[in-house]
């Protein structure tokens, strides 16, 4: 269940997308998200589709693997689509009892579903092709100016990268704790809300105790390896723009321009 979430998991492969500078990928993801919420018309949709699938293909991450990440948000998607389907006012094409489906409802539900799917696929490409460390390196570098106004950019980046590393471990641990308590007759499913919240205590206490313990151990292990904050550190994989990164910037900017052009000149039929 929790394990199916592909968001935040790295998929090792040898592709151009993997090699891109994380700053480029952050920028591209941001642009892509913006484009999803401002596009209009079938032509723009086609451009966004071609762009997305082109990038997926180039990334060499199996499409099946990416789709797995969608399962986790399926319910959210269905609810959003249903809301759009039934609650959008307009020209009715089908009605039953108090429920009414309108033409506008159908199109906005479809559009919402597509946007959400593309959004998840787009962002998971970034996390699947970028190691958490690269990602935080990218963020650290991109946010570097903030350090001047006293924000501990390095510490924040380090915390994020460690959090990402420990998510799978803690997910697995949650599973083990749940089983250990179920073996003692714990019931995590039935009962009303109050009972359900109460039933989480036997799960959360061991989880927190273990997380604190791990944090303690990890801090010691980092100190033992001479970690002393961000000053004086060198980088194994320093961020340096290559030719392909500049190319990618141009491509992504071109993509945004194309979407905006479609929006202005070919807004048909949405």
């Amino acid at each position: 269940m929790l394990r199916d979430i592909t968001l935040g998991q790295y998929y090792p492969a040898d592709s151009v997308i993997h090699k891109l500078d994380p700053r480029v990928k952050l920028f591209a993801t941001l642009i892509y998200i913006v484009s999803l919420f401002c596009f209009k018309g079938v032509a723009a949709l086609a451009v966004a589709t071609v762009f997305l699938f082109g990038v997926i293909k180039t990334s060499k991450v199996p499409f099946k693997f990416m789709v797995k990440g969608l399962k986790a948000i399926m319910i959210l998607m269905i609810i959003t689509a249903l809301f759009n389907l039934f609650l959008t006012p307009g020209e009715p094409i089908f009605s039953f009892w108090v429920l009414k489906i309108t033409k506008e409802g159908v199109s906005s539900a479809a559009l919402m579903a597509i946007r959400l799917t593309y959004l998840i696929l787009g962002t998971s490409i970034m996390t699947l092709t970028t190691t958490p460390n690269q990602l935080t390196d990218g963020l650290e570098k991109a946010m570097a100016p903030l350090a001047k106004i006293g924000i501990p950019v390095h510490a924040i980046a380090m915390m994020m990268s460690i959090a990402l590393r420990f998510i799978p471990i803690l997910v697995e641990e949650t599973d083990k704790i749940m089983k250990a308590q179920m073996a003692r007759g714990a019931d995590f499913e039935s009962g009303n809300l109050v009972k359900k919240v109460k039933s989480m205590i036997p799960l959360l206490v061991p989880l927190f105790v273990s997380a604190f313990r791990r944090a303690d151990d990890l801090a010691m292990a980092m100190e033992a390896r001479c970690y002393n904050g961000g000053s004086g550190r060198t980088k194994m994989k320093p961020l340096k723009y290559e030719k392909r990164d500049r190319g990618a910037y141009v491509l992504v900017s071109g993509y945004l321009v194309l979407i905006l052009l479609c929006r202005t000149f070919l807004p048909w039929p949405m």
Binding site: Y10, S161, R213, D217, R225, C226, N228, R233, M236
Partner: peptide
Amino acid sequence: DNQIIASVVEEDVGFGPEN
């Protein structure tokens, strides 16, 4: 589990020298 910092083997090995 509690002493590996990075999410990729080689990056973890590089952590000490970086420091």
